[in-house]
């Protein structure tokens, strides 16, 4: 069976406020998807609810992972089934060294630790031994933090990954490294949904489908040409449906 994440008409509440009012999307293994939309349209909330973050309450709709309803599963359970969600702003964790953290992660995932693999993957992402010796994210630059998130993706090889702005605050060199790593992981079968504000990363990744979120809903989806449309007329006119016909013509 093909790896599959299906989100059906999801409604999400945070602190008594409905932040997502209808999100439907599908992610298949081995493909790249994009989720775009203006700030505060609910993209991160959607990612967090799929992850199972307890602050993001699903009030309506379902999350189906490989045919199983995981809407009410605790977060670590979902992760164990092969879901990975990277953080937009990963926190600093004092006293927990990056190298030690990755070893624990590897032990958890594979039952054994191979320090050589950890070092090799780190170096592929331009993070060296000195980073492994430092506390997780403490004093790391924005770009380094994003690389750490992608390094974990590479190490865990999840079935489905949602990457929340892996390209924000990242310089062009870092961006190339991050994008090519994501590509490698996709080639090995992971289905990836990239949340982003920038076209740049998507021109590397060539998503097969782009979802557009606005006003707490997934309003539409289409192929990459939808991005041209966004660039030309901005989110507001697309979301009003003015260009909807154009989008659909260009889309599936």
């Amino acid at each position: 069976m093909n790896t599959f994440l299906r989100v059906e008409n999801l409604h999400i509440r945070v602190e008594n406020k409905l932040v997502v009012k209808g999100a439907t999307l599908n992610i298949e293994g081995g493909k790249v998807y994009a989720l775009i939309g203006p700030n505060a349209s609910g993209k991160t909330s959607l990612a967090m609810a799929i992850l199972g973050h307890p602050e993001y309450e699903v009030v309506k709709g379902r999350i189906i992972f490989e045919g199983e309803d995981i809407t009410n599963l605790p977060m670590p359970e979902r992760v164990r089934r092969g879901l990975y969600v990277s953080f937009q702003n990963p926190p600093e964790i004092k006293g927990v060294k990056l190298g030690y953290f990755l070893e624990r992660l590897m032990k958890r995932r594979y039952g054994k630790v191979d320090k050589n693999i950890i070092l090799r993957y780190s170096e592929e992402l331009g993070l060296g031994r000195e980073h492994l010796e430092r506390d997780l994210n403490v004093g790391f630059s924005g770009g380094e933090r994003k690389r750490v998130e992608v390094l974990q993706l590479l190490l865990l090889k999840p079935k489905i990954a949602i990457l929340d702005e892996p390209d924000s605050g990242v310089d062009i060199e870092s961006l190339k490294v991050i994008a090519s790593t994501i590509k490698d992981v996709v080639e090995e079968g992971t289905g990836v949904l990239v949340i982003t504000h920038y076209r740049n990363i998507l021109s590397y990744l060539k998503p097969s489908l782009v979802y557009v979120m606005g006003e707490a809903e997934i309003k539409m989806c289409g192929n990459v040409e939808i991005l041209d449309l966004v660039e030309r007329c901005g989110y507001s006119c697309i979301l009003k449906g003015v260009c909807e016909r154009d989008a659909n013509e260009g889309g599936a």
Partner: peptide, 14 residues
Amino acid sequence: GENELMYLMSRGFE
């Protein structure tokens, strides 16, 4: 810290 805890749990740790 709640954030740190959530982060670790999001990586599969109980």
